[in-house]
């Protein structure tokens, strides 16, 4: 069994990572405080939509910092996108302030791929990623400069993923787990595919909220905008998803 011990460590690390996420979220971002952060985020979005203007970084950072402090790797899409677009080019027309699309792909491509893999599994993720960025490139010149690029991309990816989920359910045969097609989703049978497999056992809504909140870094207000429903419902779905992951993943890793 020389190969079985190799993936075990990363699987456990991954589990730890998820568990830490859960515990840190509880400890450092209690529901009421995070809710307040989201309310502020929505308020700022409304305010900006009415009258685009420069938002001092200092006013944005506390909310962002608190929400994302447990995870330095998860980006702070909302605040970053807003602050940079406004402070760099206040009041400019869309065509005058947009970075080359190449920069969008380079900056956000990995995040979208993680989200696609989490929602769809590695086999369909490449197709969904490609469709997402082709659609995004088509619409890009019309994107408002103060738009939240991450939320925009995740919204597109969400729609593309729904198409694939429908196709998957049409393909589904009730005879247990089929082996995954070979994809680019990490080493087959490795810890990464275990993560995707664990995610796959979640109901779609939970998988989506976990992906959009934890992997894309979107606040629950944005997740709710994408999925419909309220931020509170999105938070519950994510919590349920993480709790279920914790169970299946912990037990899976312990075997």
């Amino acid at each position: 069994m020389p190969t079985s011990s190799a993936p075990a460590a990363p699987v456990a690390d991954q589990l730890i990572v998820i568990l830490r996420r859960v515990s840190s979220t509880i400890v450092e971002a209690p529901a009421d405080r995070e809710g307040a952060g989201e309310a502020r985020s929505v308020a700022v979005a409304v305010l900006e939509a009415d009258a685009p203007r420069r938002i001092p970084r200092g006013r944005m950072d506390p909310a962002a910092g608190r929400r994302h402090a447990p995870n330095g790797r998860v980006r702070r899409p909302v605040d970053e996108a807003r602050v940079t677009s406004h402070s760099a080019h206040p009041g400019r027309l869309p065509s005058m302030s947009q970075p080359p699309f190449e920069a969008i792909v380079a900056k956000h491509g990995p995040m979208v791929l993680r989200v696609c893999r989490a929602v769809l599994g590695p086999a369909d993720a490449d197709d969904a990623w490609s469709e997402t960025f082709l659609s995004a490139m088509h619409a890009y010149p019309d994107l408002r400069p103060d738009s939240n690029v991450e939320a925009w991309l995740v919204t597109i990816a969400h729609r593309k993923a729904i198409d694939h989920l429908r196709a998957q359910s049409r393909r589904a045969i009730p005879m247990g787990d089929l082996p995954e097609r070979a994809g680019t989703g990490g080493v087959p049978g490795g810890w990464e595919s275990d993560l995707w497999a664990a995610l796959k056992t979640l109901p779609a809504r939970q998988r989506q909220t976990v992906a959009y909140h934890y992997l894309a870094g979107l606040p629950y207000a944005d997740v709710a905008n994408i999925l419909g429903g309220t931020p509170a419902a999105a938070r519950r779905a994510a919590a349920d998803g993480i709790a279920a992951l914790r169970k299946t993943y912990l037990e899976g890793a312990a075997i």
């Binding site: 730890i16 990572v17 990995p110 490449d126």
Partner: peptide, 25 residues
């Protein structure tokens, strides 16, 4: 495996960028 130490990033075991996949995509 289930005891952890230090301040490892959450989701840290997920590669931030899957270079090979990104190039291909």
């Amino acid at each position: 495996r289930t005891t952890w130490t230090g301040d490892g990033d959450l989701f840290a075991a997920l590669p931030e960028v899957d270079e090979a996949a990104q190039r291909q995509l």
